[in-house]
Design a protein around this nucleic acid. Structure first.
Length: 269
DNA sequence: ATGACAATTTTTAATTGA
């Protein structure tokens, strides 16, 4: 089964580009981020006609995540646990039932975190966006520990808004001080990976120059001034099932593209 | 140092994103 993640930057503006990509790439399961739509306004029929079950966790104007699946879904949950006061729609999970294996998939849209606000002691200012990002990552780590404890195949995939290493940016210097690349952000990411997850893309593509995001501004795509911020973190039981993975970078050059492109993996379910 | 670009709502300006 082919699993993919794609930050579409608005479902309304991306209906054509998303439909074309689904027809070509034929993912069995796709998690989407930044649908920027409430559940009622999501054009679910367009995707149901293609054979997908559609599950959304939407929000007005911003954020919003979804799962499209041609395979049966069980135990769908919405929202990242750990803060009942968090109104932002950034997490949706479900179990995909395959012929031999079942896979817990968690679609996520991790907070951007900019602007970075620090106090005199260098601590993130409470209530600020950077503090929200780091707190969200702590909650993610807690959920990640639970997933590993099941000792079953699971994957957390989506827009992490994290540049893990210098080779994941065309111009890493430019990102110093940015919430996507600051030491606290990367350390929080590494603590999650260190629990025992496999970031699957780098296991199969060691070379630099692979990106999933190019800014709309300043001709970033034309200059290949990109960053790799969309990822899949897999439990050992999931990573063992992976047969291939890649990035569909080409669609960034099409008409009316998202600023992100899809990341996919072929998994033996 | 600044703005560039896109999507959405707050719509002819402001907010958010990365």
């Amino acid at each position: 089964m082919k699993l993919a993640t794609f930050n579409i930057n608005g479902i309304k503006a991306r209906i054509q580009a998303l439909s074309d990509w689904l027809d070509e790439a034929q993912p069995d399961v796709a998690v989407l981020q930044e649908i920027k739509s409430v559940d009622e306004a999501f054009p679910r029929e367009l995707f149901e006609e293609k054979g997908y079950q559609v599950e959304t966790h939407g929000q007005k104007s911003f954020n919003g995540v979804a799962i499209l699946s041609k395979l049966p879904l069980e135990d769908i949950r919405r929202g990242l646990p750990g803060d009942d006061g968090d109104e932002q729609a950034r997490w949706i999970e479900a179990t995909v039932v395959g012929e031999k294996n079942a896979l817990r998939i968690c679609g996520l849209y991790l907070p951007n975190g900019n602007p970075v606000e620090l106090d005199e002691a260098g601590r993130p200012v409470e209530g600020g966006k950077y503090a929200y990002k780091l707190a969200w990552m702590e909650r993610l780590k807690t959920r990640a520990e639970e997933l590993l404890a099941t000792e079953e195949p699971s994957v957390m995939l989506g827009d992490y808004n994290i540049i893990p290493q210098a080779q994941d940016a065309a111009n890493p210097k430019k990102w110093e001080g940015d919430a996507l690349y600051r030491p606290e952000s990367r350390a929080a990411w590494q603590r999650i990976v260190n629990l025992g997850f496999t970031e699957i893309f780098r296991t199969r593509h060691a070379a630099p120059g692979h990106y999933t995001f190019w800014d709309y501004q300043a001709g970033a795509w034309q200059k290949n001034d990109g960053i790799r911020i969309d990822h899949m973190l897999m439990s050992p039981q999931c990573a063992d099932l992976v047969e291939d993975c890649g990035i569909d970078a080409g669609i960034r050059g099409r008409e009316k593209p998202s600023d992100h492109v899809p990341l996919w993996a072929e998994i033996a379910l």
